[in-house]
Write a protein that binds this DNA or RNA. Sequence first.
DNA 1: CCATGAACCTGGTCGC
DNA 2: TGCGACCAGGTTCATG
Length: 269
Amino acid sequence: MPELPEVETVTKSIKRHLIGKSFSSMTIHWKKTLHNFTPNDFNDKVKGRKVKDVYRRAKYIVIDLEEVIMPVHLRMTGKLYVSNLVDTTKKHISLYLQFNDKYLIFEDTRKFGRFYLYENMNFLNNKLGVEPLSDDFTENWILRNMKSRNRQIKQLLFDQSFICGLGNIYIDEALWMAEIHPLSISSTISPRKIIALRKAIIKVLGDSIKLGGTTIRDYTYDFSYVGNYALNLNVFGKQGVACSRCNSIILKDKIAQRGTHYCPECQKI
DNA sequence: CCATGAACCTGGTCGC
DNA sequence: TGCGACCAGGTTCATG
């Protein structure tokens, strides 16, 4: 469930439970979930430390313990939530942390999700691009940076070191809104459309956050919050349906290795 | 610099 | 019902 709005929603939902608390133990079922640290490191550096803050950076949920940070990436199917008990009938709990009388549970069907441990944000900040909902994402920034690269726009928007937080759903939605074909080469897109794209990205992400993100496929987990942005989707999953703007039929092709939805009339190369 | 394909995993769906 | 092929909201690494 993981693009910027969904990660933002998860972050907000667990934050209030964790602030000021400290983890007392970690139970691991899928070892690879710990990307760059061991259970011993957890005992040394995380256990007993107070959670100072919980925030989102790109698609990472960052648990800030002051001396150390523990970012979590949900990847494709990760679910992170707080519960009073660990449901042992669940098949895909990769790990859980105990704090007070509650648990922070990480459930992940496809096992791609990861926990990281760093001293500070330097590593992530160095590899991640601009936050699309921040003041740094200006018209000048996007005009300049789109011109300097010769890449298919869909692929470029996937690049987290360029603009971070976008994924398959919101890329398709933003390109539709800005009337840009997903195969357009970034440097050749008109300034007018680039400015429209910036606006579209901000609107699509912002509106989705307001509705708690998008829930598309229900992975039949008992616990899964349901975001309502799916009601606002214009192209994603709409192949075969009439475009809400021009009435042509929405297509779905493979672009940048991903299922890509677009309107062949509104979005010309 | 840029594009493509495979790898990491499990489960759902579609066609025969 | 069974089985294979293909698909899925992500990222990384290797190869032209």
